[in-house]
């Protein structure tokens, strides 16, 4: 096989200088011709294994799969959907109703999610003040991996969530994520939106999906710009 020196260095996850030197010193089963190096793939793989060096050829590099589930708040919100007039007078009831709103979940999954949400709620309340709560399980759900979703529920009756500012809660964002990193990513984004007071007050009366998504889109754009 023939590869550019720099490409080979990348495959071996080593600095270019190191690869160049190793070839010169004869520590690596490869030869240099000009700026390219020639080697037998099998031999080099064997060598890499013996020396505890990772060797991945470029074509094996599948696009990292965790990539698309970071695609942002808007997509997750759309996946979860908006739900109005969610009933329930206590936290447990409201959560049960909210879980039943989540699209594409089997009954088993719903009950599992509910127990997990309640467990989390027992720890400390997810009511983050200003009439908003963000119930979420502490760890990702086992089983089939799903893209992240956030289910937005406008409650029919305001309920006491034991929130930090003791205000009653009228909106819940139920966050369900496949990985912890996505979870944190979405959490930070949603909390950015909720820091905006006018947005929070507008949430007090149910928004139409179009209005809601448009606002979220604006926020996301702001965030991207700040980057």
């Amino acid at each position: 096989m023939k590869l550019e020196l720099a490409e080979l260095a990348e495959c071996l996850h080593l600095p270019l200088y190191t690869v160049e030197r190793w070839i010169r010193q004869g520590r690596m089963p490869a030869r240099k011709t000009g700026s390219q190096c020639v080697f037998k793939r099998v031999v080099l793989e064997k060598w890499a294994e013996k020396h505890d060096i990772t060797f991945t050829l470029n074509e094996d590099h599948a696009t990292p799969k965790g990539h698309d589930d970071k695609d942002g708040l808007l997509a997750a919100l759309k996946r979860g959907g908006l739900h109005y007039n969610v009933t329930g007078d206590s936290v447990d009831e409201a959560l049960q109703q909210a879980v039943s709103c989540i699209p594409d979940f089997s009954d088993d999954e719903r009950s599992l999610l509910l127990t997990k949400l309640l467990e989390r709620e027992k720890l400390t309340s997810t009511g983050i003040g200003k009439g908003v709560a963000i119930p979420h399980p502490r760890s990702p759900l086992p089983g089939k991996e799903r893209p992240a979703l956030i289910c937005t529920c406008f409650l029919k009756n305001k309920i006491d969530f034991k929130a930090i500012d003791d205000k009653t809660v009228s909106v819940m964002f139920v966050i369900v994520c496949p990985t912890v990193t996505t979870h944190l990513h979405l959490l930070s984004r949603i909390s950015y939106c909720l820091r905006n007071d006018s947005f929070v007050t507008s949430l007090n009366k149910p928004l139409s999906p179009d209005e809601f998504f448009q606002k979220i889109e604006e926020f996301e754009e702001q965030l991207e710009k700040a980057r």
């Binding site: 080593l14 600095p15 190191t18 520590r27 020396h51 505890d52 060096i53």
Partner: peptide, 12 residues
């Protein structure tokens, strides 16, 4: 990280 790799390659 590099030291270990180097040592391994040298003493193999």
């Amino acid at each position: 990280d590099q030291y270990r790799k180097e040592l391994m390659v040298q003493t193999y």
